[in-house]
Amino acid sequence: MSGGAVVTVRLVRSFEHRNFKPLVYRDVSLEQSVAEFVAHVKNDVSCRSGVPPPFRRHDYDSMKIVHQAHGAKTSELVMSLDEDEKLILRSDCSLRAAGVQNETELAFFKMTDYQRYKLNPQASW
């Protein structure tokens, strides 16, 4: 991939336990589709050293913008529960059309886990 953008991806394994691991991707082409980037990240996570096995085997299927450079951050530790229509990336769009810019931080998670957590957003310690 080429294009020069730096994108941080948070692998969210558990919303309730606030269990996530950030990974940095450099030279990300913002012209590629969200589906292509998702496939790339899934493939990379499955074989990247330093990623614990529970994160490697998790069934990620959705991405959402958590933070963009020079923007306000959410008070949620994992990711905001607001503005899903705007911030969840549609797989048929390019990253750029979905709102991803250089230094954007994305959450990569399983949608059913997110929907369940959103119904009862309580943290477990």
Rank of each mutant, 00 (worst) to 15 (best):
S80E: 15
R116H: 09
Q115R: 14
E105W: 01
K42D: 09
V38F: 03
G50V: 04
S91G: 12
Q68V: 10
T74E: 04
T74M: 00
R48D: 05
K110E: 15
T8Q: 09
S124F: 06
C47W: 12
V66K: 07
S75V: 13
V45Y: 06
D84Q: 10
L30Y: 08
F108P: 06
D84Y: 04
S62M: 08
W125F: 07
S33D: 11
L119R: 02
A98Y: 01
S91P: 00
V28L: 11
H40I: 13
N120L: 03
D61L: 06
M63D: 05
H17Q: 11
V34I: 10
V24L: 12
L87S: 09
S80Y: 07
H67F: 09
G71I: 06
Q32G: 05
N102S: 14
L119Q: 10
A39N: 13
N43I: 09
R10F: 06
F55H: 09
V45W: 02
R18Q: 13
L81Y: 02
D82P: 03
V7W: 03
D82I: 01
Q122F: 01
R48F: 03
Y60G: 08
E36N: 09
P53Y: 12
F15P: 04
K42Q: 10
Y114I: 01
L23G: 05
P52Y: 09
K73M: 12
P53L: 14
Q32E: 12
S124L: 05
L87I: 05
E85S: 15
E83F: 07
G3T: 10
A97S: 15
K21S: 13
K118P: 03
R57E: 15
S75A: 11
E16H: 02
V51C: 02
G3H: 04
L95W: 02
H17E: 10
G71R: 15
K86W: 03
H67R: 13
Y114G: 03
N43L: 11
E36F: 00
V41T: 08
A39Q: 13
Y60V: 05
T112A: 15
C93R: 13
K110S: 14
E36A: 11
V9G: 05
S49N: 12
D82Y: 01
R56A: 10
P22W: 01
K21I: 10
G50Q: 08
K86Y: 04
V38H: 02
A69P: 09
T74R: 05
L11R: 04
R10C: 04
G3C: 04
Q68S: 13
V34E: 02
V51H: 06
D44C: 11
S33Q: 12
K21H: 13
D27C: 08
A98C: 09
R116T: 08
D27R: 11
V38T: 07
V9Q: 01
M79Y: 01
E103R: 13
I88Y: 00
Q68A: 12
L106N: 00
G50N: 06
